[in-house]
Design a protein around this nucleic acid. Structure first.
Lengths: 222, 222
DNA sequence: ATACCACTTACAGATTTTGTAAGGTTTGTT
DNA sequence: AACAAACCTTACAAAATCTGTAAGTGGTAT
């Protein structure tokens, strides 16, 4: 949950990186199986990711892009490819920093530390696409606009964002918001859904919650 | 207010930088007098600062450090000094990125764009030392803790932070919070000050507001 | 056509926030 | 030490906001 995750297939370099961070006092974890990296990262919710671009069967760039659309942790790309065009691609896909191998450990640590400091202010932010939700205050930001949602509305949106892109059943929503999955009164969910949609429409997001008849609700791509 | 500010004393290079940003569509302003750079930057509240480290009579590093303690905009250091130790110093003082001259315009633009994207989520954040206040929700963050303040409490803290490190007179506080500087009831300020202090004490900040007898209130260094 | 599911509006109880009132504590001066 | 001015705190009630209930409308699949 608060570790640095190293995504690097060269086991020698990976161990070296792990050693560098351990020595500097960071909790760190190295990915060894690259089949389901993306899912694993969503689960681990690391504090920061060190990402190599040449992964077995994967493009690190593609991974970076996908991660950045859903996750709120910083990504530092570390690669042997040292052309300007590589750097521009990486930054363009949302990478937070770009360093080339070989890289002096002190430089790497300084860059990592800086990213952690910047992202420290973004703690408690849930991100899906271009939406970001502060789960402490239920302030939702989208482009240049924002709304502050009431608690119940905020909780509902939070669940939908956490489950994205899956459809969330009403039972799950009841469980998460009211702490019971017997929906004593089905109506209360709809009322709050209605209120949430109205609040969202203040920032032109009135249509991002879709109903799947008989199944539940999903967040539309944004 | 939303411009990129270039702090560079070499007028040739400065004009070149300005040109690069203008061409990329950014509003940009070049500092030409370096007597009161720091104050000028606090006033301008730029979106981002490009900072040279060799300034006439000033150390860019010192400036960077001071700015970072008070301001919430990103700082990119651009310098001819290209040693690792320079980079470590710059990042250690809070600089958000470090590039060496000569620097390819595309690299500079990509780095700037990335910083702006990251800091976009921090819009509406007021910073003083290690405190940061979201002025939309009055969520105050300090170290790993946070409190969400009520509106009036939040407004008071906001004024104190905006005026830091100056002492704020009661008249000013009344004007800013209640929209009148005749303090009809002096007590209401004290009540809310008391409430604010109690809220702050939840995150061990119960003593950061100092009273200057007969003058007003100040924020203690943090 | 009809039964089911989804949506919306209005209202009232509950909660939170805010200002008023009143009394207590600290500080500086004589 | 006594006093007054400035500052601090607690309790209470009005005001604003949030939340669930109730009741009715609109849409969709069979």
């Amino acid at each position: 949950m608060f570790e640095i995750v190293v995504v690097e297939d060269d086991s020698y370099l990976r161990d070296e990186l792990i050693h560098v961070f351990k020595k500097a006092g960071y909790p760190v974890y190295g990915i060894t199986s690259f089949e389901h990296v993306e899912e694993e990262l969503y689960e681990r919710k690391p504090q920061l990711v060190i990402l190599d671009v040449n992964l077995p069967g994967k493009s690190g760039y593609e991974l970076c892009k996908n991660l950045k659309a859903r996750a709120s942790f910083p990504i530092l790309i570390l690669t042997a490819r040292d052309t300007l065009s590589d750097e521009l691609t990486a930054l363009g896909l949302g990478a937070d920093d770009f360093l080339t191998k070989p890289c002096h450990p002190d430089r790497l640590l300084a860059r990592v530390e800086r990213l952690l400091k910047t992202y420290d202010n973004l703690k408690g932010m849930l991100k899906v696409g271009s939406l970001s939700l502060d789960v402490d205050t239920y302030k939702l930001m989208f482009q240049d606009a924002h709304v502050v949602l009431a608690e119940t509305e905020g909780k509902i949106l939070q669940i939908l964002m956490e489950c994205y892109p899956a459809v969330v059943g009403k039972g799950e929503l009841f469980a998460a918001v009211w702490g019971t999955d017997e929906f004593v009164d089905e109506n209360i969910l709809q009322v709050n859904m209605s209120r949430l949609r109205k609040s969202l429409s203040q920032i032109n997001l009135g249509d991002i919650i879709l109903n799947k008849r008989g199944q539940g609700y999903v967040l539309k791509d944004v």
